[in-house]
C-alpha cells in the first residue's frame, strides 16, 4: 500500500515538473496553456490521490481535493486563453492556420 502510493506521488510530481518545464520551453501563450493545463491537472490529481492511498483514513478528503482541482483548473485556464485571444496576443510564427476570422466575435480583432 505504502509503495503503491509513493509510486503514484512520484508519477504526479514528475508530471508537475514536466508541466512547468513546458511553461518555460514552449514558444507562445497558447502552447504554454496546453502544457500548463494538462500536465498540472493530471500531476496534481495523481499526487493527491497517492497521498490518499498512503494514508487510507485520508482518502475521501483527498478525493474531494482532486475533484475540485479537476473542475476548476480547466475553467480558469480556458478563461485565460480566451482573454489572450480577445486582447490580441499574436500566435507563434510557426503556426499553421488561424481560423478565428470565421468566428463572429473575432472578426475585428487584429490579424495574427
Amino acid at each position: 500500500m505504502h509503495i503503491a502510493g509513493m509510486i503514484a506521488i512520484g508519477i504526479g510530481v514528475l508530471f508537475l515538473f514536466l508541466g512547468s518545464f513546458g511553461i518555460v520551453r514552449l514558444p507562445d501563450v497558447y502552447n504554454r496553456l496546453q502544457a500548463g493545463t494538462k500536465c498540472t491537472t493530471f500531476g496534481c490529481l495523481f499526487a493527491v490521490l497517492g497521498v490518499g492511498i498512503v494514508e487510507p483514513a485520508w482518502f475521501w478528503k483527498a478525493l474531494l481535493v482532486s475533484l475540485f482541482v479537476l473542475l476548476t483548473n480547466p475553467i480558469s485556464n480556458h478563461a485565460l486563453g480566451r482573454a489572450a485571444k480577445k486582447s490580441g496576443v499574436p500566435l507563434w510564427d510557426g503556426s499553421v492556420v488561424d481560423k478565428s476570422r470565421d468566428f463572429p466575435s473575432y472578426a475585428n480583432t487584429e490579424k495574427l
Partner: peptide
C-alpha cells in the same frame, strides 16, 4: 494526453505544428 504532451515538451526538436481550427 499527458504522455503526448510530455513527449512533445521533452523532445529536443519540439515537434509541434500549432494552429487554431473551428
Amino acid at each position: 494526453a499527458n504522455i503526448d504532451v510530455a513527449y512533445r515538451v521533452v523532445h529536443p526538436k519540439m515537434p509541434i505544428r500549432p494552429g487554431i481550427v473551428v
